[in-house]
């Protein structure tokens, strides 16, 4: 029973880590209807930049994080200036393809700027098992994942308030619904895009920090986007709480599958099992658990 509990908790915690990546996708999709293929690479780029700045200029973690946030905002502005503003009113598939290009450019840029070797990221986040749980209850929970869970909760609350209660948040939602209609009521599409890509960049930085603290910052971080996809399919592309709940379900489901079904069918099933689980949910709720149902009237 204790082991089952341990698997469940670990699954939930792993799910939170996936959610951190999924949140970045949701933000951009929610505000612009674009599926940002580069989100995983943005997490990598943010992580590389943070470690690079800390190493090169001897910055303390807080200064490194602030400087990286500035870099991510600058990047958002550049993306808007160089790519998005030239593609206003284009089909979503065109914007999607632009983000594929962006992913490769950012990966190359990260490589050129900071190199390809594994970089240690230590900003003082706790590592290892929670000792008292392990010693007193023989329950293994990782401190880093607890920190990630707390961070995710804070982020969701802040983002929910931002989207629901602020003028900018409402403007973001208006842009997401209809670019032209939003423009017609005086909302600056360019400003909104810069804001949303900046916020998404900051979320990517958080994901980069958590995943980078786990394994060192390295180029495989860009592949964590693959872990976020089933979360998005399940939770919906437009729901911030959906990204969290989706992450929890996927994380828990894949760990149960790997541990209890894996030995029977050969192991290493958690990756595809996550997609299968998401697919099953899609069959019943194509918009995802919390996604907005699109009703088009003729």
């Amino acid at each position: 029973m204790m082991f089952f509990l341990e698997v469940t908790i670990s699954g939930l915690m792993a799910g939170v880590m996936y959610s951190l990546v999924a949140l970045g996708f949701v933000l951009i999709f929610k505000a612009s209807g674009v599926f940002n293929f580069a989100q995983g690479v943005m997490a990598l780029f943010a992580g590389l930049t943070l470690v690079g700045l800390m190493e090169k200029f001897g910055l303390p973690p807080w200064a490194g994080i602030m400087a990286t946030i500035a870099v991510m905002i600058l990047l958002a502005w550049l993306i808007e200036f160089l790519i998005l503003r030239r593609l206003v009113n284009q089909e979503h598939i065109i914007l999607f393809m632009a983000t594929i290009g962006l992913a490769y450019v950012l990966e190359g840029l990260g490589d050129v700027m900071w190199g390809s070797d594994v970089k240690l990221l230590d900003i003082g986040l706790p590592q290892g098992a929670v000792d008292w749980l392990l010693d007193d209850y023989n329950l293994y929970v990782e401190k880093l994942e607890v920190a990630a869970a707390v961070t995710a909760v804070i982020m969701v609350i802040v983002l929910a308030i931002f989207f629901q209660k602020t003028r900018i948040g409402r403007a973001l939602r208006a842009v997401a619904d209809d670019h032209q209609a939003a423009l017609s009521v005086g909302i600056s599409l360019r400003t909104i895009w810069v804001i949303v890509w900046s916020v998404s960049g900051i979320v990517a930085l958080v994901a980069g920090i958590m995943w980078g603290s786990k394994s060192g910052v390295q180029f495989s971080l860009s592949l964590i986007a693959l872990k976020a996809l089933p979360v998005l399919m399940l939770g919906g592309f437009t729901s911030i709480p959906g990204a969290i709940i989706g992450g929890l379900i996927i994380g828990m489901g894949e760990k149960w599958a790997e541990i209890y079904m894996g030995p029977i069918i050969g192991g290493a099933i958690e990756n595809w099992f996550a997609y299968m689980l998401a697919l099953v949910f899609l069959l019943f709720r194509p918009q995802g658990l919390f996604g907005e149902k699109i009703i088009e009237r003729i």
Binding site: V7, S220, L221, E254
Partner: peptide, 12 residues
């Protein structure tokens, strides 16, 4: 599975 970024189930 490749690349091996997440191995919680293995180590549990």
């Amino acid at each position: 599975d490749h690349p091996g970024q997440e191995q919680k189930a293995t180590w549990l």
